[in-house]
Simulated scan of single mutants.
Amino acid sequence: MSRIGLKPITIPTGVEVKINDNNLVEVKGPKGTLKEQLNPAMIIKIEDNEITVNRPTENKRHKSLHGLTRTLIANMIEGVTEGYSKTLEIEGTGYRAQKQGKKLILNLGYSHPIEMEDPEGIEVEVPQQNKIIVKGIEKQKVGNYAAVIRSQREPEPYKGKGVKYQGEIIRRKVGKTGK
């Protein structure tokens, strides 16, 4: 029994949802439009401003797809209404970020600055030299691009230098002690 899959999704005002054949879901809202091809085995219905997802059988594959399908639709609706954002913090002497047009330039202690082009549908803001905000309407793209930025210099456990998510706790190690 999927508890998440059984919950109905309410469609907020200003959001238009279309379900075409083979479960191609299209969601239009104030922030943009999202399309996604979901598994054709799942039964998706729109009734009285609510979306319900049902599974055709009780087999293991359909049970696992039930909650996933419902969550993907809910994420699409939340994306076109509110959008998603991830905040990254940069720690370290001389480490900083800056924005030039569509490029994000990172100085992370290497011999050269790292230039990253913003992907389509993703907006990057740099309010301070040590803070990066990644925004977009697709949850997966926002999280993936934030992870790519973090992977340029992951936080190390001794001094905590590097790029980390806001609120992320880095487990610190004790360094060598002299005699």
Rank of each mutant, 00 (worst) to 15 (best):
E168R: 06
I51K: 05
I19Q: 02
M76K: 03
L68Q: 12
G29V: 01
I114L: 10
Q166E: 15
G160Y: 09
M1C: 08
S151F: 03
E89N: 11
S85Q: 14
E47S: 12
L104I: 10
R150E: 05
K7F: 09
S151T: 04
K139H: 14
I73A: 05
V124H: 02
R150G: 04
A146W: 01
S85A: 13
T33I: 14
L72S: 12
Y84M: 13
Q166Y: 03
E120K: 15
E168L: 05
H112W: 07
V126G: 07
S151M: 07
R153A: 11
Q152N: 12
P119E: 04
M116W: 08
G167N: 07
I149G: 08
Q129D: 15
E47L: 14
I11K: 02
R3M: 13
L68P: 00
E115C: 07
G160L: 08
I105K: 00
G83S: 08
S111T: 10
M1F: 11
Y95L: 12
Q166C: 04
I46D: 03
E16Y: 07
G143Q: 14
I114F: 07
Y84W: 14
G160M: 04
K135P: 02
Y84H: 10
E138N: 10
I132G: 06
T69G: 08
L38R: 04
N20L: 13
N75L: 14
